[in-house]
Each structure stands twice: as C-alpha cells, then as structure tokens.
C-alpha cells in the first residue's frame, strides 16, 4: 500500500495535538497513581464532571469553556481533598487501601457516571466557542483550533505545575511522600496533609481536562470509560512520577493512535497503542523517564 505523504503529515500533526490533550487528561493520574500510589480509577468521572460543569456554565452564562475550566479548578481542588479525607479515614489509615481502596474508586467511577446520567441523560452535550470549527491552514497542513488551543494551554498548565512541584516546599514534599512518609515527618511535614493537597491538585486538573474534552468532542456520561486504560498506560509509559515523561508518552500515544486510525481504521488504535506500551516497557521497564 502506498502511503500518501499529505495524509501521513496531517496524521502526525493531528497526533501531536491529540497528545497535548492526552497530557491534560493524564496529569491527574500521574499525580495520584504515580506520585501518591493511589489508584484513582475514578479520574475519568471527575474529568466528565469538569465537562458537564463547562457545559452548564457555557449554556447559562455563555462564558468561554476554557475560562470555566480554570475558574472551577479551586472547586475541584476542594472536592479532591474531601474525597481523599474519606479515602484516608476509611482505608489508608488502616492499611486497607490496596484492594478496598481500588473498590472504593471503582464505586466512585460508577456513582459519578450514573449521577451524570440521572442529571443530564445519555444524550451528547456540547459547548459553544468561537474556536470550535475553524482551522489554521498552512499549505497542506490543517490545524483545527479546537485541538490546537487545548493542546497549547494544556502544555502551558503542565509546565506551571512542574515548576511548582520542583520549586516549592509543598511540591518537593509531594514528590517525596510515597517514598517514605514517616521520614517526611522528621522534616516537620505532615504526610497526610501533603497527600491531601496533592490529591486535591490531581482532581483539580480534571476541571481543565474536562473543559478540553467537551471542546474537542461532544460528551455523554459513559465516554469516560474510553480514557481509563489510556491514562494509566500514559502514566506507566512516562515513568510514573515524571511530568515531562508523561507528556512524551501522551504525544507518542497520540501520534501512534492517529496514524493507526488514519491508515488502518480507528478500531485498531487502542490495540496498537497498548501493543506499543508493552514493547516500550519491555525495552525500558521503568518507563521513558522513570527515576
């Protein structure tokens, strides 16, 4: 089969943009699962809550969905801290987190999804913004703004987060807390509070990620399931604790999926990306940028 060069270039570029979006979706799980050892499989439910928050406010107040995502971040931060408190008092404090904690987040995923179904129904919902629709064209290149803008803002926001993690006391404590919590107490830090703040941040990221999701495509409550496997795969491939690694993994997965979808059909995309994950982990078991 001869490969059309125009098609290939456009597939790669679309994959890069998709990767930027995947990074926004995966940053939360990289913090909770990668850095804190909390297997929060309910993360997609929180992302969808972000989408529906953007939908509601966009419909009623006609605000820009990305602006809504930014403004709602503190609300999701507080929600995340509350979920962590519940998780800590119910499981982590007694050392029951590995299996029961997983069941807890699994339950949360379904409760979140069903609540969204009850409130919004199963119809697809979408937002309105001036950049949904138009594209930038450079010769043969076609850059849809609804992909480009989330990608750019996502990378900027993750850059800010990375700066915070490596340059603030709280950030460094977040990187240390899963390595040795009791030793962190000897540094005058309370590991439970550090984890609570970090989990709050991980949920806060789903506000913006949810806004991006509903800009890129119309959403319905069960669409979050498509992302469960993908975000864990990106976190593991990136090296668990590394945000730069997570970005590289997102972009690789985005490009691989986009090329596969363009040339072999979208149904092959998940198989190829998980195949890629297995090969990559065989080659580098610690992930791309694992420490």
């Amino acid at each position: 089969m001869a490969i059309d060069l125009n098609l290939l270039i456009n597939a790669v570029v679309a994959g890069l943009l998709l990767g930027g979006f995947y990074a926004a979706v995966s940053v939360g799980i990289t913090i909770s699962f990668g850095m804190l050892d909390i297997a929060n499989i309910a993360q997609p439910a929180f992302i969808l809550m972000g989408s529906y928050a953007a939908y509601l406010i966009n419909r009623s107040l006609h605000l820009d969905p990305i602006l809504i995502g930014v403004v709602m971040t503190p609300v999701f931060y507080v929600l995340g801290m509350a979920v962590y408190r519940l998780y800590y008092h119910s499981f982590e404090r007694h050392g029951d987190q590995s299996i029961q904690g997983l069941a807890f987040f699994f339950g949360l995923l379904f409760v979140g999804e069903v609540s969204l179904v009850l409130i919004f129904g199963v119809d697809y919902r979408f937002v309105e913004a001036s950049y949904i629709g138009p594209s930038l064209k450079f010769g043969i290149l076609d850059l849809p703004l609804r992909m480009l803008i989330p990608c750019v803002i996502s990378l900027l926001a993750i850059g800010l987060l990375q700066f915070f993690l490596s340059h603030s006391f709280l950030g460094r404590a977040i990187l240390a807390v899963s390595q040795d919590g009791p030793a962190l107490q000897l540094m005058a830090a309370n590991p439970t509070r550090i984890k609570q703040a970090a989990f709050g941040i991980s949920i806060a990221t789903s506000s913006l990620a949810g806004a991006f999701l509903i800009i890129i495509q119309p959403v319905e409550p069960s669409i979050g399931r498509d992302y469960i496997g993908r975000i864990f795969a990106i976190c593991v491939l990136g090296g668990m604790t590394s945000l730069p690694g997570m970005i590289v993994a997102s972009i690789i997965l985005g490009v691989v999926e986009s090329i596969t979808a363009t040339f072999y059909g979208p149904s092959w995309a998940p198989a190829v990306s998980f195949g890629f994950l297995l090969v990559a982990l065989a080659w580098r078991p610690a992930g791309l940028m694992g420490r």
Binding site: F169, A183, A188
Partner: peptide, 22 residues
C-alpha cells in the same frame, strides 16, 4: 534516623531542600 531514611528517588539537592521544610 537509623538506616538514614533518605528519599532514594530524589536528588541529593532535593533531599537537602526538603530538610528545610520547617
């Protein structure tokens, strides 16, 4: 502490900076 209890996957400098969390 006994056994030193460093943060093994942080750099030397990150360990030192965490020492100043107080």
């Amino acid at each position: 502490p006994e056994g030193r209890r460093l943060f093994p996957k942080l750099t030397v400098e990150e360990n030192l900076l965490l020492g100043a969390f107080r």
